[in-house]
Design a protein around this nucleic acid. Sequence first.
DNA 1: TCAAATTTTTACCATTTGGTAAAGTCACGA
DNA 2: TCGTGACTTTACCAAATGGTAAAAATTTGA
Lengths: 207, 207
Amino acid sequence: MSNIPIKKPSRIQQRNRRLILDAALEVFSRDGYGGATLDAIAKGAGLSKPNLLYYFEGKTEIYVTLLSQLVETWIDPLVELDPDGDPVEELLGYVQHKLDMSLELPAESKLFAGEIVQGAPRIGDHLRNELKPLFDQKCATIQAWIDAGRLAAVDPAHLIFSIWSTTQHYADFEVQISVLLDDEDPHARASRHLEQMFRKLLTPTDT
Amino acid sequence: MSNIPIKKPSRIQQRNRRLILDAALEVFSRDGYGGATLDAIAKGAGLSKPNLLYYFEGKTEIYVTLLSQLVETWIDPLVELDPDGDPVEELLGYVQHKLDMSLELPAESKLFAGEIVQGAPRIGDHLRNELKPLFDQKCATIQAWIDAGRLAAVDPAHLIFSIWSTTQHYADFEVQISVLLDDEDPHARASRHLEQMFRKLLTPTDT
DNA sequence: TCAAATTTTTACCATTTGGTAAAGTCACGA
DNA sequence: TCGTGACTTTACCAAATGGTAAAAATTTGA
């Protein structure tokens, strides 16, 4: 018996909200929350500023909407870690998946990084309510693999941190990497390097 | 024959510039460049805003001064990588050193991260002129170690990226880590984990 | 087709923010 | 102790920015 009328969004609404969120992703990830302006987002979306505010209640709502959607996509590959699969291959697959995401969605990665670096003032709850339970569950999965002797003894939590940090680094520190690397194809070498590193770390030694 | 009168800074000048830079580090690392305000910095430093601007030409100058000094400290441990030392121990020592820095100077790490994430618009030159040559040199050192069979065959550049990303992660993603870890002492476990990971990666296998 | 609902534009506004001018205060060497 | 230069405060300001009111235009459904 909700009094709130839930109307299905019109085509115009869908299109414009998408335009706005796309433009906002660009602007927020490039300039940070504080540095971003509604004018810049409006310009990017091809709309007027008051028109923006017809679709979103304010700057913060745009930002939070963006981040909420993002967190879903971001933690999704972790969900797919299959307890019944081969431990080493599951985890190496996860590494590659995360690396691919970093290279394909750098703006998303940067937006997320920026928010966390600044203390997650606007998505702290999301982390606690959605990410934490999943994280604990996956740590348990990894620990079970170790206990079964199917994976080298590693610290599950810190393993995940290492996977996150090394892969996201290629998105978040893009500029630094491109300054330092004269390289042809950073992706291929990054991929090989991470595969090598995590395979050595994770492969159990029969004793 | 410079016409610019270089005066040695008075005690007051030294003290106040330090107060300002300390406060600015807090504010910039917490709110980002765009989100930071001169008022917040002034308040943190216990000075009036016009008084701030007596010591620095503007917001940007404070920020750039901070970052320039930071980059020095930041790349310093890399300088110390000794070509004549034991390769594995040198690199593991570097890992620990970087990890310690992340835990002791999180604000510095975040400030740097924030700048890079946003495309290093204000210290790009610093990276090119100071970091790049050092980076190339150290990659060569690592490659030499590998060629001498004293280190497992790894990609030197991407090894360094992995060291940077995993260690700095503990500073930059502090909030996320503290949400996910119920843990007593993250430092000790992080240290052990990274030691384990990089030792396995780097130790040469006699063939 | 035409009225109701939705969407967009125009014209604003209050606050915040980086920055300045200039008067005043303080410290220090002669 | 007094004048000079270093430092600080007061009183501002112009531009930028997040946001609003209301009229105008457009779309939609009967």
